[in-house]
């Protein structure tokens, strides 16, 4: 795989977070806004060992090439499960946005084909594509803001929501499932100034807070009944009377879901290749496993946020911290040009 720049890494992670924002379903209020801010601070703290590690010149590829298979296997499992969860989110979101596919399996297969194609182009092409999608995201937000602007009622901020700040923090933290991807994706950057990659956190926080603010102030008393607040917000944010903006939201939703699943596919296939060096069609295998796990997760109606938080903390904080503490004893894990 080729190297990607820190700005590409930032947009990639931001778009993944934006997809979760589109699909999230929780009681929203000012408590959730506060909880989101706290959650992003926690995410920044969780990233500290990753930054320290890569500043020291750590290379995950170098570590895995020493026949350490446990970490790659855990990451493969994590990315496949979260890929499956992304498919489930797509199915649910498709109902809200009236995607022109009736059967979830057809949707999954079509998205799978597109993701296979984008994954086959490699991480560099994917990172370049994410910059373009970031532009579409900005345009969509501008349209959303224009449509919602006249409906904003700041009095709605005084209304209390059902969940507390702690519950909201945990709920939001469970959605930060791309945090472990930071640890992996940093491996594909040039390693200079790794802290730049964390720029996605303040950007993500602004994005989340903006959309939450709009949801609360625009939707008002409709908010408690909204299963997917973002989709309800889009349905009432139509800036033009003669032309509906639904198609723009639909395009963004599909692009974000494709980018997210592609990211998880690329990373899973990469780790799968480290474990099984001669394995072919790794992207296809990964995608099939993701669709399989989506069917499984959909059938058991899985929504284990606590398990998600544990996995996120483990893979984005505990694992890098362990590497940090043991790095001085293992010079071979460093990149060759740094040694």
């Amino acid at each position: 795989m080729n190297k990607i720049s820190c700005s590409q890494l930032t947009t990639t992670l931001l778009l993944s977070s934006a997809f979760m924002l589109m699909c999230f379903s929780a009681p929203i209020g000012t408590e959730y806004m506060a909880g989101t801010a706290i959650s992003f601070v926690i995410q920044a703290i969780l990233c500290i060992p990753i930054i320290i590690l890569y500043r020291k010149g750590f290379s995950l590829s170098a570590y895995c090439s020493e026949k350490h298979f446990l970490i790659p296997c855990i990451f493969v499992l994590y990315f496949i499960l979260h890929g499956g969860m992304s498919f489930v989110l797509v199915f649910n979101g498709a109902e809200q946005l009236s995607l022109p596919f009736s059967a979830p399996l057809v949707t999954a297969v079509l998205i799978g084909i597109v993701c296979f194609y984008t994954a086959s182009l490699g991480l560099c092409a994917f990172a370049r594509a994410s910059s373009i999608v970031f532009g579409i995201l900005v345009i969509t937000l501008a349209v959303l803001l224009t449509g919602a602007w006249q409906r904003i009622d700041t009095m709605e901020l005084a209304q209390k929501s059902e969940s507390s700040i702690i519950q909201s923090t945990l709920q939001n933290l469970s959605l930060a499932d791309t945090l472990p991807a930071v640890f992996v994706l940093m491996n594909f950057t040039d390693g200079k100034k790794p802290q730049k990659a964390l720029f996605f956190l303040p950007l993500g926080l602004i994005l989340w807070e903006l959309v939450l603010f709009l949801c609360i102030t625009v939707l008002g008393s409709l908010l408690p009944d909204a299963q997917y607040p973002f989709f309800l917000l889009t349905s009432v944010s139509q800036p033009l009377s003669s032309q509906r903006a639904d198609s723009l939201y639909l395009i963004l939703f599909v692009l974000l879901c494709i980018l997210r699943i592609t990211l998880l596919t690329v990373l899973s296939a990469h780790f799968l290749g480290m474990v099984f060096k001669k394995l072919r069609f790794r992207s296809i295998i990964t995608l099939f496993l993701m669709i399989g796990s989506a069917v499984l997760l959909g059938s058991v109606n899985y929504s284990g946020s606590i398990l998600c938080i544990i996995a996120i903390v483990l893979l984005s904080f505990v694992v890098p911290l362990t590497f940090c503490l043991r790095l001085k004893n293992h010079v071979s894990w460093k990149e060759k040009n740094n040694v």
């Binding site: 009236s98 009944d225 309800l232 349905s235 009432v236 139509q238 009377s241 509906r244």
Partner: peptide, 13 residues
């Protein structure tokens, strides 16, 4: 009316 807004996607305005 809410079903018309959500299901039939009637313009909110």
């Amino acid at each position: 009316l809410s079903s018309l807004l959500y299901e039939q996607r009637i313009s909110p305005s």
